[in-house]
Design a binder for these strands. Structure first.
Length: 265
DNA sequence: TGCCCGTCTGTAATAATAAA
DNA sequence: TTTATTATTACAGACGGGCA
């Protein structure tokens, strides 16, 4: 553990770091370089005793600088849009945010975080490109490590479930899990004419189709009384399943033959 | 040189829907 | 648990860069 910074030191160092970052190339600067520059501006003072505190401070000032840059970019773009008398819906939204929003602070926070996310994503993409290039050449893993990774599956099952349950009980502290349930389940499909006639819809998600089918089955009392898993097909259902009787599990399977992906032009 | 941290990739789980 | 589906999310492993 290194020694902490006093308040006066922190203020002083923060100002110097800001000045260093002001002139530095944020793409290439490193904590080490900033610290060395700081030491230089302090007349060669050795800061190794306070390395950790300095490190945190540099990190804080660096993030502040990034946020500031992002905000400046944002402002300049907003100005640009205003000056062109923005006519698009996007422009209207932006102007609303900047001027008449009752909660400007909240919007700003949200924006800066998304800007950071964008930066992080961009960096990640670049890193990915570099990694893939490096791997294609030669790496320790040799690019054939996929199968080695594949084998480890058993432990994941448990850990995944465990984490999920922990998350559920842990909502109070952090931000709500942004687990967007719904994923592919909400994906709409075009229905075949036969299915479309039965459901009364031309587009439905798969669960929606199942729901409609069961509504139809119950409304017409189409379950076999001897084996309720068997569905007695009426005319509409026979047009779909080509059978007079269909197992409810098989029914779900057969549905896929009547669903077509929605092509968005 | 070796450790630590950040990032990417691949895999598995999960989500909805029905009834038995 | 069974049946089918797929987008999303989380996890674990691997790797590279930075730093001491």
């Amino acid at each position: 553990m290194s020694a902490p910074l006093s308040n006066s030191e922190e203020k002083k160092f923060a100002a110097i770091i800001d000045a260093i970052l002001e002139t530095a190339d944020l793409e290439t600067i490193s904590q080490r370089k900033v610290r060395q520059a700081l030491e230089g501006r302090l007349g060669g003072r050795d800061l190794s005793d306070q390395k950790d505190a300095i490190k945190d401070l540099i990190q804080t000032r660096f993030e502040a600088r990034l946020s500031q840059d992002a905000q400046e970019d944002e402002d300049s773009e907003t100005k640009k849009r205003s000056s062109t008398n923005g006519t698009s819906r996007y422009d209207d939204d932006a102007n609303t945010d900047a001027s008449a929003s009752p909660e400007p602070a909240r919007k700003k926070v949200k924006r800066s975080s998304s800007a950071e996310d964008a930066d992080a994503r961009l960096a990640a993409q670049l890193q990915a490109q570099e990694n893939s290039l490096a791997r294609s050449r030669s790496t320790r893993g040799g690019g054939t490590d996929k199968k080695a990774v594949k084998k480890k599956k058993a432990p994941r099952k448990k850990s995944a479930k465990k984490v999920k349950s922990e998350d559920d009980s842990d909502v109070e502290g952090g931000e709500p899990k942004k687990k967007r349930s719904g994923g592919g389940f909400q994906k709409p499909f075009n229905l075949s004419p036969a299915l479309s006639e039965l459901t009364g819809e031309t587009q439905l998600s798969r669960p929606g189709v199942v729901k409609s089918l069961w509504a139809h089955i119950k409304a017409n009392d189409l379950q076999d009384p001897n084996d309720r898993r068997q569905i007695l097909c009426d005319e509409k259902m026979q047009a779909i399943f080509k059978q007079t009787k269909v197992d409810m599990f098989r029914m779900n399977k057969e549905i896929s033959n009547h669903l077509y992906p929605v092509e968005e032009a």
